[in-house]
């Protein structure tokens, strides 16, 4: 279900084929998920701590699927951590199908910086499947229990548009405002 939803979001998926060795697609921008469907359930054991569940009334949260073997993930994590520090947005990292020892060593080595949030363990890929993740890294922004933004691939967390997109998605809906406030032109 989630995959179809993400597909509906349009430009987030299939990256252009890269023929040249070690060339990578440039980081992209989060895209709105059509219809803001309810986020799939997420309740997993954590790397070093109590199990974590994403509650429907949780504050805006970035759910970020990654793996230590994934090269763009390693590039993206420090940028995501920096974004989380600057913005204060909560981050849940979900490692896909790796032993805890490997993840601990990965963060201990420091090449990807400190983890910007709890690291959840999706050992059997069930969460990745439930969220329709077919490519790592994959990021979802969950607002009030609903999928607001998503991107499969490396997100450009340094781009101001990323912060603006999350801020706009998290802004409360504005009802019964004057037309001027809604940006509609008046004569």
């Amino acid at each position: 279900m989630a995959l179809a939803l993400v597909l509906a979001a349009g430009p987030l998926l299939i990256a252009p084929a890269i023929a040249a060795e070690e060339e990578r697609a440039p980081p992209g921008l989060l895209a709105a998920v059509e219809g803001r469907p309810v986020a799939p359930a997420l309740s997993l054991g954590a790397l070093d701590g109590a199990p974590v569940a994403l509650a429907a009334d949780a504050p805006p949260t970035i759910v970020h699927f990654f793996a230590t073997w994934c090269a763009p993930c390693r590039t993206e994590l420090p940028a995501l951590a920096d974004f989380a520090r600057r913005s204060g947005v909560r981050v849940l990292l979900v490692d896909v199908a790796e032993p805890a020892d490997r993840i601990r060593r990965f963060f201990a080595e420091g090449t990807a910086g400190a983890a910007p949030g709890p690291v959840l363990l999706d050992q059997n890929r069930a969460a990745a499947r439930g969220w329709g993740v077919s490519l790592l890294p994959a990021s979802f922004v969950v607002i009030s229990g609903r999928l607001a933004l998503a991107y499969e691939g490396e997100v450009d967390w340094a781009d101001p548009k990323t912060h603006a997109a999350i801020a706009a998605a998290a802004a409360p809906p504005q009802k019964n405002q004057p037309k001027e406030a809604q940006g509609e032109q008046t004569r």
């Binding site: 299939i14 990256a15 890269i18 490519l135 790592l136």
Partner: peptide, 8 residues
């Protein structure tokens, strides 16, 4: 995932 990434 390999095919989808385009980075083979």
């Amino acid at each position: 995932a390999l095919l989808k990434s385009g980075d083979l």
